[in-house]
């Protein structure tokens, strides 16, 4: 296990280095950083002084090493647009996005997995078919349309739920959470649902397909022939065997949800990283963009590492093979 993790960490390091290189290239070569920092009336000499002070006259490799060093010590520099430290901006936005991603994942798993198992067992049943058709509609409609529809229904027509922002939040240190207030939870519901619908459909269909395959295997037939009760048969014997592919896909999707919640965040004016990213694109705020890039890459790397570690706990064949090595 330890050798496995350390090997994966080493691989992750290479991935992060490669992404940093792209982020650095973005930072250094998309336009002249100095020209974007200063006003028109700054003299050439002043610009030259800033250039010298920022180390932009050093060789490219030296600059890259310095860039990596700063990233590693969480010194992300300053935003062009707001003149705030980038780390501060990200830290205020990160909790909103993570909480949103977490809740939408929860919704998709809590509904998607049972629905997937149900539709696999009751093949061709009326409810199973209804579920399949409705989720198909859900997956076919673009996210922003769903979001707008939900706002119209629950926000405007029924007036039950707020339609934008995070609502009231409570600060736990630097982490502002909306889990602890009713208003925060209510505000969370619509965006989380919007973000989760696609994931839900995918989870359900994946679980269903995998379950159908597993239910055809000899060991399930044998367990049925031994009279194992149906609940254990479906959940303990069959469902567990579908987990490996299901977790792989869900893990990849989760990264996607967090990284690309941009559309949902903008529909609901959710003050998360997606919205921040959108603003930085609009104002060509390169430091924010490059840090965002690195952070998202790190998120994917971490999620994949967790997925790989989950294989360990689920599948004894993986676990024992690595112990034997």
């Amino acid at each position: 296990m330890l050798t496995f993790i350390s090997r994966r960490l080493l691989q992750s390091l290479f991935v992060m280095l490669a992404v940093s290189l792209i982020a650095f290239a973005l930072f250094r070569f998309v336009g002249d950083p100095v020209a974007q920092m200063v006003g028109q009336e700054t003299s050439i000499e002043d610009q030259e002084r800033i250039r010298e002070r920022l180390g932009l006259n050093d060789s490219i490799p030296t600059q890259f090493v310095r860039f990596i060093g700063k990233l590693a010590s969480a010194d992300f520099g300053y935003s062009y647009r707001t003149r705030q430290p980038v780390s501060e901006m990200i830290l205020t936005r990160l909790p909103a996005t993570l909480e949103l991603g977490f809740v939408s994942l929860l919704i998709s798993l809590l509904i998607g997995i049972p629905a997937g198992i149900y539709t696999a067992i009751k093949r061709g049943g009326a409810l199973a078919n209804t579920l399949l058709v409705t989720t198909l509609v859900g997956i076919s409609i673009p996210t922003f349309v769903i979001g707008i529809f939900l706002i119209y229904l629950f926000g405007v027509k029924l007036g039950w739920l707020p339609t934008f922002g995070r609502g009231d939040t409570i600060a736990l240190g630097w982490w502002k959470t909306s889990f602890l207030t009713l208003d925060g939870l209510k505000s969370m519901l619509l965006p989380a649902l919007t973000l989760g619908v696609y994931q839900l459909t995918l989870t359900m269909r994946l679980v269903r397909a995998e379950m159908q395959d597993v239910l055809k295997t000899d060991y399930i037939k044998f367990a049925t022939a031994r009279g194992i009760n149906y609940r254990s048969l479906y959940f303990n014997h069959a469902f567990r065997n579908t987990l490996i592919p299901v977790i792989t896909i869900i893990g990849l999707q989760l990264g996607g949800i967090i990284a690309f919640s941009i559309v949902t965040e903008s529909v609901f004016q959710w003050p998360g990283m997606g919205l921040l990213f959108l603003d930085s694109i609009r104002y060509v705020d390169i430091p924010v963009m490059s840090v965002y890039l690195v952070l998202i890459a790190m998120m994917f790397v971490i999620i994949n590492l967790i997925v790989d570690m989950l294989y360990f706990f689920i599948d004894p064949r993986v676990r024992l093979a690595s112990e034997a090595n």
Binding site: D218, I220, K221, N236, P316, R317
Partner: peptide, 8 residues
């Protein structure tokens, strides 16, 4: 194939 691979 007749034994569940994930259970002892």
């Amino acid at each position: 194939t007749s034994l569940n691979p994930l259970l002892t």
